[in-house]
Write a protein that binds this DNA or RNA. Structure first.
Lengths: 165, 165
DNA sequence: TCGACATTGTTGCCTAGGCTACAATAGCCT
DNA sequence: AGGCTATTGTAGCCTAGGCAACAATGTCGA
């Protein structure tokens, strides 16, 4: 297992992620959507009424960046900003009807892209693949949480075992 | 299978990719490396002597962007530019010894990160997971190639089945 | 109550990447 | 050999995102 080994699971996984993103980006461009835009669409569809900070967290970008992106998408009539009743600081975000329509088409593209990618797998294999990936995801989530906690509790965030070599 | 379904394989896969990138970024930051930098390191380690255009392709980034990144990394003594003997236009790229040392530590972090992420899987399951992912990757590569060819051959790059709805 | 502190969204500044145009060089065809 | 086209790396311009600072608002404890 070395950095030269193209079959290394780390490489394979990152390649799969990159390739599917590439294919999807290319197909969804026919809707006139950039990656940043379709990410906003998918997040706000799943969670309408999110605040700007919440959206920024979901997209893993800066609050300021998210704010400016919303500026653009509001100008383009993709999203609406509405004040929150209980907290006058927050602005809740909603997709316009037009944006929801585009999201539906985008989702169809996403489904067919994933479906195409999984073509060589039998139904049983797809289920296995999904199940294994879900368990890995769960593990990664606990890792992220643990690293967060560790960094917050231990003042000198000791370098990871491997890095200390 | 709807956009609301958190168990949808598309979501799971993108989450896995995002989470592992997050964890690795965080751990590798102890080496003072940004994502762009460690990507350059890993690519040039696998393929020393690559030209700037080749590096740009590997990173899926603009030639100009790659050139500027190399400017910075050359200034920081991470990479060296050497002229090509046969073609005076191209500049071949090589990691400095120092950079190769850092790459070794980075690789150790990568291995332990992937290993940690796969903790909940048995050796058999890991093998299955890798095998399934490899087959999906292969399928995606043919898809990318096919889309390329299609776009080049068919003047009106017809919208994908799903987009045409 | 009210004053310290936290949170939300916005703005300014800086850096990084995409796109275009360009000079230098290479390859090719006659 | 000479001209036409392609390719390589670079510079200029524009946009997008990260970081810091800020005003407005909310929260919590003395």
């Amino acid at each position: 297992m070395s950095p030269d080994d193209d079959g290394y699971i780390g490489y394979v996984l990152s390649d799969v992620a990159r390739l599917i993103r590439t294919v999807f980006d290319r197909r969804v461009r026919s809707l006139g959507l950039t990656r940043a835009q379709w990410l906003v669409l998918s997040r706000l569809y799943r969670r309408p009424g999110a605040s700007q900070t919440e959206l920024a967290d979901m997209l893993e970008v800066d609050r300021a960046s998210a704010g400016r992106m919303i500026d653009r998408m509001e100008k383009g009539h993709w999203v609406e900003r509405r004040g929150d009743a209980g907290d006058r600081r927050v602005k809740r975000l909603y997709l316009t009807q037009e944006a929801r329509r585009v999201h539906a088409r985008m989702w169809a593209i996403a489904e067919s892209t994933v479906d195409d990618a999984l073509t060589p797998l039998s139904p049983l294999e797809r289920a296995r693949f999904t199940g294994l990936a879900a368990r890995v995801k769960e593990q990664l989530q606990t890792m992220v949480g643990a690293d967060d906690a560790g960094a917050a509790e231990a003042p000198p965030p000791r370098p990871s075992r491997a890095a200390a070599s």
